[in-house]
Design a protein around this nucleic acid. Sequence first.
DNA 1: TGAGTATATAAACAATTGCGCAGATTATCA
DNA 2: TGATAATCTGCGCAATTGTTTATATACTCA
Lengths: 123, 123
Amino acid sequence: MDKLDHAFDAVAAYFRVMSEQTRLRIMHAVCEVEKPVSQIVEELGATQTNISRHLNLMHRSGVLARRKQGHQVYYRAADPEMVEICRRVCNRIAAQLDQEKPLRGDLLRLMPRPKRRKRAARG
Amino acid sequence: MDKLDHAFDAVAAYFRVMSEQTRLRIMHAVCEVEKPVSQIVEELGATQTNISRHLNLMHRSGVLARRKQGHQVYYRAADPEMVEICRRVCNRIAAQLDQEKPLRGDLLRLMPRPKRRKRAARG
DNA sequence: TGAGTATATAAACAATTGCGCAGATTATCA
DNA sequence: TGATAATCTGCGCAATTGTTTATATACTCA
């Protein structure tokens, strides 16, 4: 019954990846289009060091993919299931808070499904 | 866009609930049947204090419901969406590790869907 | 009421984690 | 080759979180 330890740890780790505001913001930023670190840093208004750490963690966890081009590194969502789960969580919380606070609208706009073929994000 | 702060925080908190081994074990224990604290403690082999704290947190987070009966408190899963998300995560990780380690079997058995209880012959 | 059982809470500790600073690494271009 | 830009990493700090010991509350029964 101890082999389950690994299973539970793996599941917990998976949840833990998205249990942090900054990482959720990152996921929101790159769930549709890949972006270089510098752009993510700018959009989130955080320090480059911090973003880099989170990007690294998310990449090692298999949630983000990275691609080097020149001296820039582009990150993008690499785990469609995780993105889908994020959407579910947003919907779940939106439903819960539906009558309490005016958060619903915002929540439903997080992690949007790709509407059509989109081009690179513009500043 | 500072109102999003609350949204991201709520989503992060939701993920954080299941980002811990003990809480995942608890969810696994009560996702089908409600159980008193004492039984959960026994099944998980943890201290009563620790289990109680986690149960309380999960209850405040809305993922567990509690019911008092006599001097016992029964807990059960109260958020079907969370249970479904847990299953999805298990499936996701099982798929990822499918070729690596023999975890798949265990993972797929976590958070099982409620089996149709045979409708006792007293139709 | 008091004894006994089941569960919850308080305080203290240890471990983890997010963060910023400074320096290291990698890649492009002159 | 060196200079510059973009990203990553080692170290220390502060805040958070999981755990334990001891105690408190709630309920039942005699």
